[in-house]
Amino acid sequence: MSIQHFRVALIPFFAAFCLPVFAHPETLVKVKDAEDQLGARVGYIELDLNSGKILESFRPEERFPMMSTFKVLLCGAVLSRVDAGQEQLGRRIHYSQNDLVEYSPVTEKHLTDGMTVRELCSAAITMSDNTAANLLLTTIGGPKELTAFLHNMGDHVTRLDRWEPELNEAIPNDERDTTMPAAMATTLRKLLTGELLTLASRQQLIDWMEADKVAGPLLRSALPAGWFIADKSGAGERGSRGIIAALGPDGKPSRIVVIYTTGSQATMDERNRQIAEIGASLIKHW
């Protein structure tokens, strides 16, 4: 067993022997301040990774656009098919120029040779490549099948209805392509620590998230040296922004954090800054 596999296998073990965790309302004060600064709703939840206990939450059962955070769930569904012998990570998928959609920095470079399922998941999570996500959605049967996968996990809230990039439209009061912070946090925890996926697939999923290259201005910008984070960000229309993450000190994750916002007129930089400040408060009061 590799060191990384050992780390993920012992996530519940280490967490069980940690000192009790206590909620700190100071972080919620910052979440509410972010709402004021952005002029928009902000949803927040913080779960203990081992027990699933909610440590703090704000608007945990209000719907927010998922945006690209759905790509972690998508690759979880792909990995479940791999575990069941219905898919192979090494299978190569070929596609054409007509398949390319807006923001496809990886797939646009491989029109000639195609990409493997493993490479597509890596591109979808680490670079948020939209064509990679659409190609992977095709392998599982489309958005409705991802929703069905989530329902089978016990998540009857999260739903995907459309493809990239239309799913980022974020129309107010439109339930399409949305989740709730509580539902997303619980589902992410199941994917990373539950028995739904094999140990190898859980490790692969967290490795992809740990290698995320496009979430630097968010929670990662607030992390002290030595902290662990595996995350996936999302951005959408109407001032929408979000991030889902597993993080913790001492090089291992111990909490799940989900943050979503929508309806702001603020710039992307300002949305990023507010999420980073929430992260800084979380870490300060850990």
Rank of each mutant, 00 (worst) to 15 (best):
Q4F: 10
A9M: 14
A9E: 06
I11R: 05
I11G: 08
P12T: 12
P12V: 12
A15V: 14
A16H: 14
F22Q: 12
E26L: 14
T27A: 06
K30F: 07
K30V: 11
A34V: 13
Q37E: 14
A40S: 10
G43V: 00
I45K: 01
L47T: 09
S51G: 09
K53P: 03
E56L: 08
P60Q: 13
P65R: 02
M67L: 09
F70R: 02
C75I: 07
G76L: 05
A77D: 09
S80T: 12
S80N: 12
V82Y: 07
D83M: 03
D83G: 05
D83A: 05
G85S: 10
G85A: 10
H94Q: 13
S96A: 12
S96T: 13
D99T: 09
L100A: 04
E102L: 10
S104D: 02
S104K: 02
P105V: 07
T107R: 01
T112V: 13
D113H: 11
M115Y: 03
L120G: 02
S128D: 00
D129F: 00
N130W: 00
T131W: 02
A133N: 02
N134H: 04
N134D: 05
L136I: 09
L137M: 11
T138G: 13
I140K: 03
I140L: 10
L150G: 05
L150M: 11
N152Y: 15
G154E: 09
D155I: 01
D155S: 02
H156R: 13
H156M: 08
T158E: 00
L167W: 01
A170P: 08
N173Q: 15
D177S: 02
T179V: 02
A183I: 10
M184F: 09
L188W: 04
L188E: 01
K190E: 15
L191W: 05
L192A: 06
L192V: 10
T193R: 15
T193E: 14
E195S: 12
T198A: 11
L199P: 15
S201A: 10
Q204K: 10
Q204L: 14
I206V: 14
D207P: 02
E210N: 10
A211G: 13
A211F: 09
D212P: 04
K213G: 08
V214P: 05
V214H: 06
V214T: 09
V214R: 07
P224T: 06
P224V: 04
A225C: 13
G226K: 10
W227N: 01
F228S: 07
F228T: 07
I229F: 03
I229W: 02
A230Y: 03
A230R: 02
D231G: 04
A235L: 06
A235S: 08
A235Y: 02
G236Y: 01
E237Q: 14
R238G: 12
R241D: 02
A245P: 00
A246Y: 12
L247H: 01
L247Q: 02
G251L: 09
I259Q: 01
T261W: 04
G263V: 04
R273D: 10
A276N: 09
I278F: 04
G279Y: 03
G279K: 00
G279W: 03
S281Q: 13
I283C: 09
I283Q: 07
